[in-house]
Simulated scan of single mutants.
Amino acid sequence: MTAASTTAVPPTRTAAALTAVGLRKSYGDKVVLDGIDLTIPEGTVFALLGPNGAGKTTTVQILSTLLPADAGQARLAGHDLVREADAVRAAIGVTGQFAAVDNLLTAEENLLLMADLHHLPRREGRRRAAELLRRFELTAVARKPVATFSGGMRRKLDLAMTLVGDPRIIFLDEPTTGLDPRSRRTMWETIRSLVADEGVTIFLTTQYLEEADQLADRIAVLDRGVLVAEGTAEELKRRIPGGHLRLRFADERRLASAADLFGTATREGEALALRIPSDGSIPALRSVLDVLESVALEAEALTVHTPDLDDVFLTLTGQAGPQKENAR
């Protein structure tokens, strides 16, 4: 009797919603994009950060077919950016920095206008408009002029209009600029639900580092047309010096004993605390705890401090943080 054979099943890999290789763009002698490569999996949020003039808006314009690249290739939703531009446009949605809504029309009329532009049948257009009004909690104001809307309501309507065509990839260029904190967080929840519930892929540019930290599965930093770093928020933070573990002790004696164990540590005498340089990883944390346990020394509290995205941005670009991008 022979044992039944088993065939190993390879792990599933998420398909790429967007890939770009060697994208370049110049205006005369000024190089705006210098050969950038991107791979963004389906159903994820990708954030592109960079200072003024780094090339973020140019990247979005090229990938959304609004501007031709000088060199390089890209595929979006399985379609070639150049050879299948119409198919790419059908698969994407673009929401710019400022709400592209008609103030003289009502919210419902704006959505129906967009449905007409997408050549949806009249009944389907009305169904889609009603569905989006419900999703964005705009049903109660559906027949009010957009001129009466708050900034947050206008941004929600703008995103709803982008969704009329049921895009698989959405470019959000600074989607929460000018919104108050409550409206910004409402927009974040909307973006999260698009990804989680519908598998939409989001390509986000933002001037708020916290926004990228909260939303993005992966973040890339663009500086002078070159991608200088890419990874998860935590991976990027670990690349920057300044992270540490902070141990607090019950008395001066225990603090002194711990300081003797860690030569690179910094004492905070009044706080009875010790700061130990660390990348914040689990192995680093375990190593410190093992040393303390080996001499039966116990800390009253332990906290992990890692650099934030502001530190990452400052270190990688030499600037304190991205501002609203007015130039290319």
Results as ranks from 00 to 15, higher is better:
residue 25 K to I: 04
residue 90 A to T: 08
residue 184 R to N: 07
residue 319 Q to V: 02
residue 292 L to G: 04
residue 151 G to E: 01
residue 322 P to F: 02
residue 35 G to N: 06
residue 11 P to Y: 04
residue 13 R to V: 15
residue 307 P to I: 06
residue 72 G to H: 11
residue 28 G to V: 14
residue 11 P to R: 05
residue 97 Q to T: 08
residue 259 A to C: 06
residue 200 V to H: 12
residue 149 F to I: 09
residue 249 F to Q: 02
residue 158 D to Q: 08
residue 285 L to R: 08
residue 261 L to P: 02
residue 107 A to T: 09
residue 10 P to N: 13
residue 316 L to Y: 02
residue 78 G to F: 11
residue 152 G to I: 04
residue 284 A to V: 03
residue 180 D to T: 09
residue 193 S to M: 13
residue 185 R to V: 03
residue 133 L to H: 09
residue 236 L to K: 03
residue 99 A to S: 13
residue 266 T to Y: 00
residue 48 L to P: 04
residue 276 I to S: 08
residue 102 D to K: 07
residue 227 L to R: 00
residue 218 R to N: 09
residue 86 D to M: 11
residue 222 L to Q: 13
residue 173 D to H: 09
residue 53 G to N: 06
residue 177 T to K: 02
residue 104 L to W: 07
residue 185 R to C: 01
residue 317 T to S: 07
residue 213 D to L: 01
residue 136 F to W: 02
residue 135 R to G: 00
residue 296 A to P: 00
residue 35 G to R: 03
residue 238 R to Q: 15
residue 103 N to V: 03
residue 313 F to W: 09
residue 185 R to H: 14
residue 94 V to R: 06
residue 131 E to H: 15
residue 326 N to I: 05
residue 236 L to Q: 03
residue 155 R to Q: 15
residue 251 D to A: 11
residue 314 L to Q: 13
residue 175 P to F: 12
residue 17 A to H: 13
residue 104 L to Y: 10
residue 228 V to D: 14
residue 170 I to F: 09
residue 43 G to S: 08
residue 131 E to F: 10
residue 160 A to F: 06
residue 145 P to G: 04
residue 203 F to T: 12
residue 201 T to N: 08
residue 125 G to H: 11
residue 325 E to I: 11
residue 88 V to Y: 05
residue 172 L to W: 07
residue 126 R to K: 15
residue 6 T to V: 15
residue 250 A to L: 09
residue 165 G to E: 05
residue 28 G to R: 12
residue 303 T to H: 10
residue 128 R to C: 09
residue 149 F to A: 11
residue 35 G to W: 05
residue 316 L to Q: 08
residue 135 R to Q: 12
residue 242 G to V: 10
residue 77 A to W: 10
residue 67 L to M: 15
residue 263 G to P: 02
residue 167 P to Y: 05
residue 70 D to G: 14
residue 74 A to S: 12
residue 280 G to N: 09
residue 82 V to Y: 11
residue 144 K to E: 15
residue 8 A to Y: 10
residue 231 G to H: 07
residue 113 L to Y: 15
residue 253 R to M: 05
residue 221 V to R: 01
residue 224 R to A: 13
residue 255 L to D: 07
residue 132 L to I: 08
residue 55 G to Q: 09
residue 141 V to Q: 11
residue 104 L to R: 14
residue 112 L to C: 02
residue 156 K to C: 00
residue 26 S to L: 00
residue 68 P to H: 05
residue 281 S to Y: 07
residue 65 T to P: 07
residue 71 A to Q: 13
residue 157 L to K: 06
residue 74 A to I: 08
residue 132 L to E: 04
residue 2 T to V: 11
residue 296 A to W: 00
residue 241 P to H: 14
residue 213 D to I: 02
residue 297 L to Y: 03
residue 51 P to V: 13
residue 215 L to M: 03
residue 108 E to Q: 15
residue 163 L to E: 00
residue 252 E to M: 12
residue 41 P to A: 10
residue 113 L to S: 09
residue 173 D to L: 10
residue 112 L to A: 01
residue 308 D to A: 07
residue 159 L to E: 05
residue 13 R to C: 04
